[in-house]
Design a protein around this nucleic acid. Structure first.
Ligand SMILES: [Mn+2]
Ligand SMILES: [Mn+2]
Ligand SMILES: [Mn+2]
Ligand SMILES: [Mn+2]
Lengths: 217, 217
DNA sequence: TACAATAATTAGTGGCGCCTAATTATTACA
DNA sequence: TGTAATAATTAGGCGCCACTAATTATTGTA
């Protein structure tokens, strides 16, 4: 199959391509992976030779059908393992990403499908990201954020956009998780801060940046 | 922590050291890993510098206390994952080794212990090999083989020495697994073949080599 | 003990995947 | 449009971990 690096690049390219209207440049890939752009250019050459991506200076990097298929399977494995770590081993949602980052590379023809079955065919991972199905179909992902909400209305937290430890730990502190109900009380015009009520409790104020990273249902 | 290769060498050295009275030479390690002895010499230098092994031409390679501790933890992870793959994901015992060979390298401070708990603190892996405890203690392993049995007596299969697919698949065909009861009917003096009865069923003849790879209780 | 077989070691090489530094191409905007 | 900033690429190098081929050390046996 592929090397560890090839897989990480494929997945990074897939992730960048999910952000709408973003041209996938060597620099963007480098930032996602924390690598030097020069290294990315090397790998672009390698993946192009393997027909997993196509690179055009104007259009940027694009996954080929094969590359897309393979990237989706890596994402599938990552998210399934995250569910396993959280639900079966009792990790918290700020601890699972790095471990899944390694587990996703275990290559065995039937492992992902067996794990999927064992977990009861979950549709979303602990961060609310859709888990691609064995056939490559990806459940719908969420795109409306807390900042899109009208004051006075309520919603359910469906996913988080930022999955950094800093953000996830803040959410734990605020007692917010997937499924938490949030009501937007008001928007502060000065800096777009949001006054919210979490699960019907007393009001809390959060920043605009915070709101943009909460995806709602 | 360690690189993938370092871990595989550590484990290989540990495994060779478990065979009684075997001097651990570069050649022996090379054979275990399927590597060239020249490569082994490189790694011996590296692991010696890291104080995980000590190498003396007369005495061969020896694990230091630190090296031994680390090797045992890798073995622990390997065997725990094997239990997981068999019991939770439904693999057969001839399919799990290669996957565990990769899973054992996932490094997370609490992963092995959580997995251990999830699996109910198993003492033996699906091949009957002892699973080291979190504190490094290793449950007793089995050493008496089917060839040691006196004709007319019976025993319980406790472990297999050879874990190659060829052997395991043969055992599946013979309907022999851990826990199977075997009675030794007779030993053929000509070539030490063994006539056995599996779970009280009709007699079967197996080779001396076969018998040496069945560890009994 | 001498010699042949075997084992261990050294020397040199190559792929992979990363880097820095230098160079070239592109883009933005004054 | 010219120039400065930014992006992409090339060139060269490095660490890791394998290898082969050549050499040296050890061993077993006649
Ligand atoms: Mn990864
Ligand atoms: Mn996730
Ligand atoms: Mn391994
Ligand atoms: Mn085993």
């Amino acid at each position: 199959m592929y090397t560890l690096s090839e897989e990480n690049y494929l997945k990074a390219i897939y992730r960048v391509s999910q952000q709408k209207d973003v041209k996938i440049t060597p620099t963007a890939i480098a930032e996602t992976l924390g690598n030097n752009p020069a290294s990315v250019v090397d790998m672009i050459r390698k993946l192009t030779e393997k027909q997993l991506i196509a690179y055009d200076k104007k259009a940027g990097v694009k996954l080929t059908p094969q590359g897309s298929k393979d990237a989706i399977l890596i994402v599938r494995r990552h998210r399934l393992w995250e569910v396993f770590l959280l639900e079966k081993l009792g990790y918290h949602w700020d601890e699972i990403h790095d471990i899944a980052e390694e587990l996703e590379h275990i290559s065995d023809a039937t492992l992902a499908d067996r794990l999927d079955k064992f977990l009861g065919f979950p549709e979303y991972d602990p961060h609310g990201d859709p888990i691609p199905k064995a056939n490559g179909k990806v459940p719908k992902s969420f795109s409306v954020t807390l900042t899109d909400l009208k004051p006075g209305t309520a919603c359910r937290v469906a996913a988080v956009r930022d999955t950094s430890n800093a953000f996830l730990q803040y959410l734990i502190k605020l007692d917010i998780g997937i499924g938490t109900r949030i009501q937007l009380i008001e928007k502060i015009p000065f800096d777009n801060s949001l006054v919210i009520s979490i699960n019907g409790k007393e009001n809390t104020t959060v920043s605009q940046k915070f709101g943009e990273n909460i995806l709602i249902d």
